[in-house]
Amino acid sequence: MHLRCDSYGKAFATAVWIAAVFCVLPMNTAQAQTSGKLRLLVDPGDSYEFVVDHQFRMQQREVELTTGPHHFSFWAPKRMVVDTTLVVEEGRTKSVVLYLPYSKDYLVYQRELQQYQRTMRKYRVIPAVITGGAALFTIISYSKAKKAHDQLEEDRTAYDENRSPTRIDVLKYETIPADKDDFKKANTQYLVAAGVTALFAGATVYLYHISGKIPQPEFIDNEKLRFDGLTWVPGPQGGTWMGGITWNINR
């Protein structure tokens, strides 16, 4: 849930600007000599952002601040917002190493996504692989049946062209019956394989259809909403004040 108050936001932003010009900046100028640096070594290193003193949203590896304690809120996509106070020492550059833990929402999403992927594997990949295997077996069986059929055609040609009565007898009463048996076996195997493949294909289509109704988990980065709510975010029309309230009704 977000609260947007453009008109009040603009007025408030103007007031803050005037206060900054007349009050904050002269103080900063007076205190400019007593500053220090913080070098931020944050995991993940490429996408983190932070808010300093509940006001200034930044995205950089090194920050120069006035000496003393400063409040930091760190955040990165999929990670939790981490609030901490860092002390800046005069004239020194301090390195801060920080690991942003994954947010609970993301961990839950990851678990649900893995469960979804396992379900998809069960409903889609495994049946498809079995059907593919059956189809391959059918193709091999067909190839064998075709070969046996071709052998019968060769037997017929051999009969027509043979010039030996003995070989004709062997061909007619031994070779051809044996080749016919081979063809019968190969053809039966092919028909059974084709039938089984058709059944598996049907089952695969059915499971594919069923699995299409299972919703895919969606990740909503509530920590980002919380982090965005910490600061004023300028927009193309000026600026807006944003606040975030998260209420996870699943728990």
Partner: peptide, 10 residues
Amino acid sequence: LKDDLDPATL
């Protein structure tokens, strides 16, 4: 595939 080869008809 059909087996239409009958030795008796050869």
